[in-house]
Design a protein around this nucleic acid. Structure first.
Lengths: 148, 148
DNA sequence: GACATCTGTAACCGATCCACTTACATACTT
DNA sequence: AAGTATGTAAGTGGATCGGTTACAGATGTC
């Protein structure tokens, strides 16, 4: 299945912003942590901003920061903020209506897929951004942040 | 996220085979129900055969049939039979190790992704192929099968 | 044994998607 | 005004996917 890395990137970005707290960070700094291009970061930040997860300021001394406490941000929110379509692709074209199975299979699968995706999001809802930050930075990681 | 329609196709194929019971069906017949090309069907049948979900016979009067009772086939089995990689893509390249978040974020996300996928598969495990067949063919669908 | 049928697989095509990159206009601080 | 940072459009190269063609091999029927 394996689709895009947008979700991994988004969680990573928000975790860094959680780490930086009020200070926030520029798309350049975040891109250095991700080892990618600043535009990739800005596109993701655009989605995260639409979902009211971050606030960003333009111009000199600008950048982005979390608009909420990391303890109150669950991973399913992040998922919904950046993943557009459904997890499973349906039939690319209509099945044969003259087949008794093909006639109704799409509706059945829609329901099955929806319940599977619901279960997945509920699992994500159990984790907050604060959990991720804690786990990612616990023990032996007391050094100061150094981008590149 | 939306990836491939392979899972939808696979469930559809197996549902038709469940409908046809001992009779089974050729890749041509299945392709007609899916409105796709027989080779697409055969490629999927190949995966389903490796997972011991179907048996197929070559040559004249050949075709595929379920190797188990539909009541004993759960959708998560089908999912694992045909979906290779993980549901979520990880970072395409290593994050910056000099960033305290980038250093360990991959391990954290691996665990989060695994638990989300596990939850999804558990939801799929609640449905059997027999359930799908019943729901897809209940009421008003008593007509005989007519391919094409 | 010859023939028709059906499978398995390789190879190719066109479309799509994605991460990445370049480029540039805009906005904000100092 | 200068410098810094964002937002977004547009283009690129690679990968993936559904679909298609082609063909060799297996199997039942005549």
């Amino acid at each position: 299945m394996a689709a895009t890395c947008r979700f991994a990137f988004a969680v990573h970005i928000l975790t860094v912003l959680a780490y930086k707290e009020r200070e926030g960070g520029t798309s350049d700094l975040l891109a250095h942590s991700l080892n990618t291009h600043p535009v990739i970061v800005r596109r993701l930040l655009s989605d995260l901003r639409n979902a009211r997860l971050v606030e960003t300021q333009k111009g000199s001394r600008g950048g982005s920061r979390l608009s909420r406490c990391p303890r109150e941000i669950t991973l399913d929110e992040i998922y919904r903020a950046i993943e557009g379509g459904p997890m499973f692709s349906p039939h690319p074209h209509r099945p044969n209506r003259r087949c008794p199975v093909g006639r109704k299979i799409e509706a059945v699968l829609d329901e099955v897929f929806a319940s599977a995706e619901e279960a997945m999001q509920q699992a994500l809802a159990l984790r907050t951004l604060a959990d991720v930050l804690e786990t990612a930075t616990d023990s032996a990681s007391s050094g100061p942040f150094k981008a590149a």
